[in-house]
Design a binder for these strands. Structure first.
Lengths: 136, 136
DNA sequence: CAGGTAAGTCCAGTTTTCGGACTAACCTGC
DNA sequence: GCAGGTTAGTCCGAAAACTGGACTTACCTG
């Protein structure tokens, strides 16, 4: 987790990724939407590309223009972003802005829930502990 | 999400929270385990307390000693931490250290999966989009 | 009484981040 | 054909955050 945070834990990194998930793949659009200094965002995108989370792809020559796309590893950060969004919606709402609503493929509003892959039950704060038994 | 990251997105904040989830509630123990500068960690803990995520509780007078406990809001960050851990385990493994294994209440190794609360299906990277229809 | 633990604070130096201005290379409408 | 807009950055100096290490206070232990 420490290593994960070294990559995505820097300022603006996860916000930039959220934008890419939403389909906003261009530099200027991200700057507009998240309000990061252009400088910092450029550095962050470079490091995300270096980490194999984004891919910088040219979508036009003349003039040369680039956009950022998620690699497979990047797509797998979606759960992180969804759980962060949910927490924010539940605990920091009413500070003005309406939360962003996502529609899941099933037709309902997407609300992210974390379950145990083995038993399918929602994970409660106290329902896990560091494993002691060998070879679990 | 931006507001969430202003609170928990600063350096060491999520690592400190992970330690509290693991039951390491004392300042010195966190310093030892995560290796943060004492100064920075102290500042981070203050801000987490201020944000209502942790609670600073005295566990001994004479000498006065404090520990940090999760509030309800703090406990609800568990999914965020689990999804971050899982991503790291899958994408940054083999850098030496064995990943931490958690045992779920069901007896199996806890692997966090994010599902749609409405339909119960795992959320795929492309299976959601910003809602357009009103009142979803 | 020497040594250890716990929870910090203080400091000075380094690293990041900040906002704003700037560049280069096109397109668009008039 | 040229004023204005768009895109993807870079460059700058100032401000903020982070860093390791030393220091403090108040116990407890042998």
């Amino acid at each position: 987790m420490a290593r994960t945070l070294e990559i995505v834990g820097e300022k603006w990194a996860l916000l930039a990724l959220r934008e890419v998930f939403l389909g906003n793949r261009r530099f200027d659009e991200m700057v507009r939407r998240i309000g990061a200094p252009r400088d910092t965002l450029a550095a962050r995108l470079r490091s995300l590309v270096g980490a194999g989370i984004l891919e910088r792809r040219q979508y036009s020559e003349h003039p040369a223009r680039y956009e950022y796309r998620l690699t497979t590893a990047g797509q797998e950060l979606y759960p992180v972003i969804l759980t962060l969004m949910r927490w924010g919606d539940e605990h920091l709402a009413a500070d003005g802005k309406a939360p962003m609503v996502l529609e899941h493929a099933c037709g309902h509003r997407l609300v992210a829930r974390v379950v145990c892959e083995a038993c399918g039950q929602p994970v409660q704060p106290r329902s896990a502990r560091p494993a002691t038994a060998a070879g679990l």
